[in-house]
Design a protein around this nucleic acid. Structure first.
Lengths: 209, 209
DNA sequence: ACCTGAACACCGTTCAAGT
DNA sequence: ACCTGAACACCGTTCAAGT
């Protein structure tokens, strides 16, 4: 019960002996995350090579490449949801505190895991919608979204469809992360300052008058 | 001088005779844009096939696949810049009118050309930065960005670094487009309403108090 | 149950050779 | 100047065959 750690059942220097005994799936996902973090292209054959198995072996655990990407995306949404829940639980009181905690955490996650984030959202616009991925995405944001209805009930923000207000605020924060990941921020700009600026403008813009 | 049309020197039913006489470059770009609009993967070999040339022929006009993508991105930024300029010139007076025109035009372009937009920004986070692409991007937004300094001069919005304010507002609108393109808007949500809502919140949040 | 390895149909890129 | 076509080094996917 020690491991709150996400999914590294094998540490970095694990005994290479137990491959092909049930953990090829986990090994493939680990190498995939590493490749993602390193910014390299994801090749199923390359992942198989890194795991020391033949190129046909991944087929036993992932029907195709997209299934592996979906598994990565799902894990990403779970980690994001956990990060957001933690941030919310330690946020300063009030709507501004909550939105600031959400914004900083979301943008931090998004820029710290740029390639993963792209992958997480790339799945959503596919026709078949990765099933579990869409549900994981909803769950990751569900708690944060209730924040708007709560703020309305407390009279901290204007009335109106809370989903629309929440979507608009989330979109704004997501856009900031996207702009940062795209390298479109002027080199001397401070992203944290931008997040605070955006949250402040949103809070002021949403304030009842 | 009739053609205000963007770049279709050859119409859809043009004489297929003049290929290999100087316009293979344009033909490749046309087929590429069509593939982009259709949502299919871009394959250089497939584009060559569609143009009726061998797979090695594109090499004469584009050093590699990325060079063709850069050409598409550059054209995209030019079209976006033109659309924004037109919108700005017919906008309602004042900061709100200008930001509304910008927002509606940007989000419309972004959702109408989702794959192109992704390509336009994908280039920017590459190490070598596509040269002309980065400049084209700057030029597309330059005029719109001056809007914030002007609004400050007119006392319509708060003081502060106009680049920071402009970036934050742009990021918010870009995020809304990204969310829409990612299929993350609830099916019954109206994107136009969202844009107006976001612009209103930004205008209120930026108002001097 | 899990993995191998040949096979198939694709890629992008390179480069001699043709016209 | 522009294009062809073979060659090279990759892909993802499939599937019989092995253990």
């Amino acid at each position: 019960m020690l491991s709150m750690a996400t999914s590294n059942m094998l540490g970095g220097v694990a005994s290479a002996r137990t491959y092909h005994h049930g953990n090829l799936r986990a090994t493939l996902l680990e190498h995939a995350e590493a490749a993602l973090a390193a910014g390299s292209e994801l090749s199923l054959r390359e992942l198989a090579r890194q795991a020391g198995v033949s190129h046909g072996a991944p087929r036993r655990h992932f029907a195709d490449k997209q299934a592996l990407l979906d598994a990565l995306a799902l894990d990403g949404f779970e980690r994001l949801g956990a990060a957001l829940a933690l941030a919310e639980s330690t946020a300063a009181p009030g709507f501004r505190g909550s939105l600031l905690a959400f914004g900083r955490t979301y943008v931090h996650f998004a820029t710290e895991h740029a390639a993963l984030l792209e992958l997480m959202y790339a799945g959503k616009h596919r026709p078949d919608i990765g099933e579990g991925v869409a549900r994981a995405a909803d769950e990751a944001f569900a708690a944060s979204f209730s924040l708007f209805a709560a703020a309305q009930a407390a009279g901290e923000i204007v009335p109106g469809d809370p989903e629309r207000l929440g979507t608009v605020a989330f979109a704004a924060l997501h856009g900031l992360a996207a702009i940062a990941n795209g390298g479109m921020l002027s080199p001397d700009a401070d992203l944290d300052v931008m997040v605070d600026e955006l949250v402040d403008r949103l809070v002021l813009g949403l304030a009842p008058r």
